[in-house]
Amino acid sequence: MTQPNHPPRSRASALRRFLTGQAAGGAVLIAAALLALLLANSPLGPGYAALLHGDVGPLALEAWINDALMAVFFLLVGLEIKRETLHGQLASWPRRLLPGIAAAGGMAAPALLYLAINRGGATKGWAIPAATDIAFALGVIALLGDRVPASLRVFLAALAIIDDLGAVVIIALFYTGALALPYLAGAGAVLVVLALLNRAGVTRLTPYLLLGVLLWWLVLRSGVHATLAGVMLAFTIPAQDGREGSPLCRLEHWLHTPVAFVILPLFALANAAVPVLGLPPGALAAPVTLGVAAGLLLGKVAGVFGFAALAVRLRWTELPAHAGWTQLLGVALLCGIGFTMSIFITLLAFADAPLLQAEAKLGVLAGSLLSGAAGYLLLRLAAFRTDR
């Protein structure tokens, strides 16, 4: 009988580090979000808001976090997408099929549910519930330890990576403002130079990173959201057949800790600070709040589980190894945790509407909390029944 192909030890180790780092980062992210909520609803709230909007050089502190530091986060996302697509869990079509179909359903269903609730209203927020936060989701699944099959963790990671790619495309296509063509042309020229460095076999990271800073500035001035410069840079970093010491793997390894434990917590501190006590009484039941919360809690699970179940029933693919339908449903619920990407898209969708922005953030927090709790409890129950 033919033995299954196992990934090389280096790739398996990289995946384990990826899952562990993201899970640990999820706990820090939760703490930062809670602290931001407490600060925003305390007597320190006005001073905290003034601090975030204060200028630090050419940009406000909040802009440095959302436009500059988050570009580094998107660089890491791009590196993970490239590695997994070339040499990892998404390297072949059979491996891509189930998480790819589930991710497609998980982006479409929440968006449609949001639009149904907000028809004729704030439709620009349709993409907010379409994103999955891998750090939070893996943080929750890590609490269950060995009760969840490793195949489900890999499925969730692969789905979230495809989901991140979808979010990047959505931001590029639907949340880009008026374009400044000279700066856009400059960014294109820098990308050509980066591609030539890759083709010439340059493996030192310094020239890529220096040109990446220039690329970020040009993209910032071009009208395209500056964070997309991180993804563009990632796709030019040499992968060298997925070897552990390749420039891509080295940069990804270096970025994990600062992104998970510094950049994302700072993003949460800056953007989860919703002054709930200062909102109008109807904000909790506003269409935007309900649309985002329902999209994450109901739309995500319907799309992810429904599309995955249909693909399995049609025999296009199979369930993850050693996993049952209840466990797949639990993971689909965890996909409704949309914190980082959902709040980021909120900032773009409602940049000039503070009340709608606050309502959307409420929906993100409520939907993510309920999805995470429901997914954890269902996976815990499934594990209990298996033990029995």
Rank of each mutant, 00 (worst) to 15 (best):
L52T: 03
L52H: 07
H53G: 06
G54A: 13
G54V: 00
G54M: 00
D55H: 12
L59E: 07
L59T: 12
A60T: 15
E62F: 03
A63K: 13
W64F: 08
N66S: 12
L69E: 02
M70N: 04
M70C: 04
A71C: 07
F73I: 02
F73S: 08
F74Y: 10
L75I: 07
L76M: 10
V77K: 01
V77Y: 01
G78R: 02
L79I: 09
E80N: 12
K82S: 07
K82L: 04
K82C: 05
R83P: 09
T85Y: 04
L86Y: 04
L86N: 06
H87A: 08
H87I: 06
G88K: 06
G88R: 07
Q89P: 00
Q89M: 08
S92E: 15
R96M: 13
L97S: 11
L98T: 05
P99F: 13
P99D: 14
P99S: 14
P99Y: 13
I101K: 07
A103M: 08
A103H: 03
G105W: 06
G105R: 05
M107C: 03
M107K: 02
M107E: 07
M107F: 00
A108S: 10
A109H: 02
A109E: 01
A111T: 09
L112K: 05
L112I: 15
Y114F: 13
Y114L: 02
Y114S: 02
Y114E: 04
Y114M: 01
L115D: 02
L115W: 06
A116D: 06
I117F: 14
N118H: 10
N118A: 15
N118S: 15
R119N: 07
R119A: 15
R119Y: 06
G120M: 07
G120F: 09
G120Q: 07
G120Y: 08
G121L: 14
G121F: 06
T123G: 01
T123R: 08
T123W: 10
K124R: 14
G125N: 11
W126F: 15
W126N: 09
W126E: 10
P129N: 11
A130H: 08
A131D: 10
T132Y: 08
T132D: 10
T132G: 09
D133Q: 09
D133G: 09
I134E: 09
A135W: 06
A137R: 01
A137I: 03
A137E: 01
A137L: 01
L138S: 05
G139T: 06
G139V: 02
V140L: 04
I141S: 00
A142S: 13
A142R: 05
A142Q: 07
L143H: 08
L143F: 10
V148W: 14
V148T: 09
S151Q: 13
S151T: 15
L152K: 13
